[in-house]
């Protein structure tokens, strides 16, 4: 039970005090967390990205081309000001443009072409047939230019039930994840800190 573990354990209990009700102890712990995590984030971003990817190439290696991203980066920081925040739209446009440009082929390949191919299954067993029907009926459910009636409506209805099965399994897995997190914290409190369980 060293001092570091005890501090971590006290902070853990401070967060759990929220279970009784929202209270100043919880609020204090929460704000410590906010401050520390923002500080952490700033340090990692500077030391792991801005220094090796901008400062060193520009100031140590003297590669002058890096003046352009440096200026754009500074323009981005102007977002904090009221007067010049519009200048930050230029670097923002670059990031958004790049993101859009790379997203199109990526979605086309990984989410459309590959997923379509994987659905082109021989209709030789129940599972394959269910997969094809489910994919198509979900697509029909998200079809907006036609009213859901007749055979089309029945298909859409099937789609919503398949969606419910998906949401159900997601529900189950999400519950599982939340409980795992609690197990981890209890293992910490009873094991690492108090040494009751091993």
């Amino acid at each position: 039970m060293d001092i570091s573990t005890t501090i971590a354990a006290i902070l853990t209990l401070a967060i759990y005090s929220f279970l009784y009700r929202d209270n100043p102890v919880y609020k204090t712990a929460e704000h410590i967390l906010l401050g520390v995590s923002v500080g952490y984030f700033v340090v990692i971003t500077i030391s792991n990205t801005i220094i090796p990817k901008l400062i060193i190439p520009l100031f140590v290696d003297g590669e002058l081309i890096y003046i352009i991203p440096a200026l754009l980066g500074i323009a981005m920081l102007l977002r904090v000001t009221k007067q010049f925040s519009h200048i930050s739209r230029i670097p923002l446009a670059l990031i958004i443009g790049v993101g859009a440009g790379i997203a199109i082929p990526a979605y086309m390949q990984a989410h459309l072409i590959a997923q379509m191919k994987a659905t082109m299954l021989p209709l030789s067993n129940i599972s394959n047939i269910v997969i094809i029907i489910a994919v198509l009926s979900v697509l029909v459910y998200f079809f907006f230019s036609r009213k859901h009636e007749g055979a089309f409506g029945v298909t859409a209805k099937a789609g919503i039930y398949f969606l419910m099965i998906f949401f159900g399994s997601t529900f189950g897995y999400t519950v599982m994840a939340r409980i795992s997190l609690l197990i981890g914290r209890i293992q910490f409190l009873l094991g690492d800190w108090l040494g009751i369980i091993r």
Binding site: A114, Q115, A118, I131, T170, Y173, T174, A177, S180
Partner: peptide, 17 residues
């Protein structure tokens, strides 16, 4: 991955991605 994301990965499992 975390269990929360499990169901979202199955389509890629079946397509062998």
């Amino acid at each position: 991955i975390t269990a929360v994301m499990a169901t979202t990965m199955y389509p890629f499992l079946q397509s062998e991605q």
